[in-house]
Amino acid sequence: MPLSHEAPGTPPRADPLPAPERAAPRAAPTAAGAPPRRRWGSAWLTGGLVAVLVLLSLVSAGVGAYEIPLGEVIGSVQHRLGLGGAALDRVGESVLWNVRLPRVVLALLVGASLGCAGALMQGVFGNPLAEPGVIGISAGAAVGAVAAIGLGLTFFGNWTITACAFVAGLVTVGAVYLLSRNGGKTEVVTLILTGIAVNAFAGALIGLFVFFADSGQVNQITFWQLGSLAQATWPKVLAVLPCALAGLLVAPFYAGKLDLLSLGERPARHLGVDVERLRLALILVVALLTAAAVAVAGIITFVGLLVPHLLRMANGPGHRFLVPGSAVAGAVVLVAGDLAARTLAQPAELPLGVLTALLGSPFFFWLLRRTRRKQGGWA
Rank of each mutant, 00 (worst) to 15 (best):
A145T: 06
L58N: 06
T30P: 07
W159K: 10
E349R: 07
S113V: 11
F223I: 13
V73Y: 04
N315I: 13
A139I: 12
A329W: 01
V110G: 00
L238K: 10
I206C: 08
A19P: 13
V275P: 00
Q78P: 07
G157Q: 09
A34Y: 09
P69L: 09
L288H: 02
V250K: 00
A200M: 12
L45F: 00
A287M: 07
A202T: 08
I283D: 03
L344T: 10
N158W: 15
R342P: 11
A357I: 05
P29N: 10
P308W: 02
W44E: 12
A197D: 08
V104W: 03
A295Y: 02
V286A: 09
A239K: 06
G169E: 09
E131I: 10
R266Q: 13
A204Q: 04
V332A: 10
G64N: 04
H319A: 02
G247M: 05
P18N: 12
T46I: 06
V105W: 00
A139M: 11
V328H: 00
A145Y: 03
G330V: 03
A293G: 07
L260S: 05
A281V: 11
F209V: 13
G227T: 08
N315Q: 14
F156S: 09
L355S: 03
G48R: 04
L306P: 00
V52C: 13
L359T: 07
F212Y: 15
K236A: 09
G82L: 08
L151V: 07
A336P: 03
G71A: 14
Q217L: 08
A268L: 10
A336D: 06
L56K: 04
P308T: 04
A357H: 03
L278A: 06
G376I: 14
R100K: 09
G376Q: 08
N127L: 12
F166N: 01
E6F: 15
R37S: 15
L305T: 01
G377W: 13
F156G: 08
G272F: 10
G272S: 06
G227S: 08
P69K: 04
G85N: 06
V134N: 04
R26S: 15
